[in-house]
Amino acid sequence: MTVFRTLAIAGLLLGYAAVTSAQSAVDEIAKYRQQLQDGNPADLWEARGEDVWKQKRGPKGVSLERCDLGLGPGVVTGAYAQLPRYFSDADRVMDLETRLVHCMVTLQGMSLADATKRPFGSGTNRSDFEALAAWITAESRGTKMNVSISHPKEAQAYRLGEKMFYFRGGPHDFACATCHGESGKRIRLQDLPNLTEKAGAQLGYTTWPAYRVSQGELRTFQWRLYDCFRQQRFPELKFTSEASIALTTFLAYNANGAAFNAPAIKR
């Protein structure tokens, strides 16, 4: 029976050679992703991130262990699932990286320039943010996304982020929505989550940070936005800029209710 069915399916497939070769490529990619699940090298960043968090650093020689990520000083577990959020001590909305910079400056006494000199790592030039984000976000794995827009500044960030999501510009007329505004689309063979719908926003947001196999690096959500805009042919997005926080607020809020599931591993 099984043999017969397999043969029948094989016959069917032969009739659609072009379609099936594309389909089998998609299946093979799915299989490849499956195989990658075990042994995610993001673990290596997580280990280093915990060290960086606990290390005494900066002119004041203190660790980040008193850094308040929104749930109180030093509370890491579950904190990422509620970011970005409004922080009254800074009177503004901050995402994880922006808050880490704030803590490096206020607690550890670093200058803003020193704290932000390496947002993204490359080979042996490693970024503390990528390590810290790997560890901190891993401490929210399984926690339901629960981002608030009840504070006026949070609501404002959300609305600005929404506008930016649909903003078309540059020589290619691209907006975030060009690639992420419809369901079931892909670019080359890469599936594109529809970030304007609940399911897509949840899938997209809860799987960053991610270890990118093609780069051999762990990448944060700040990097995701930075590199999307590069490919949109926009100018260079500044690390922890207001636009990056607004867009992150928009996307994170839309992912509310889904269990956070990163650091992930991606192509």
């Binding site: 609305r159 600005l160 506008k163 930016m164 903003f167 510009g169 540059g170 020589p171 805009f229 042919r233 926009f234 100018p235 260079e236 997005l237 500044k238 800029s241 207001e242 636009a243 990056s244 607004a246």
Partner: peptide, 24 residues
């Protein structure tokens, strides 16, 4: 909001290589 988003974007990007701010 649209105007404000545009202002925030202008302050959040920097010119790099051929990608100048007038792209916004």
């Amino acid at each position: 909001i649209a105007k404000q988003a545009h202002e925030v974007m202008r302050a959040s990007f920097k010119e790099t290589g051929q990608a100048t701010l007038d792209r916004l």
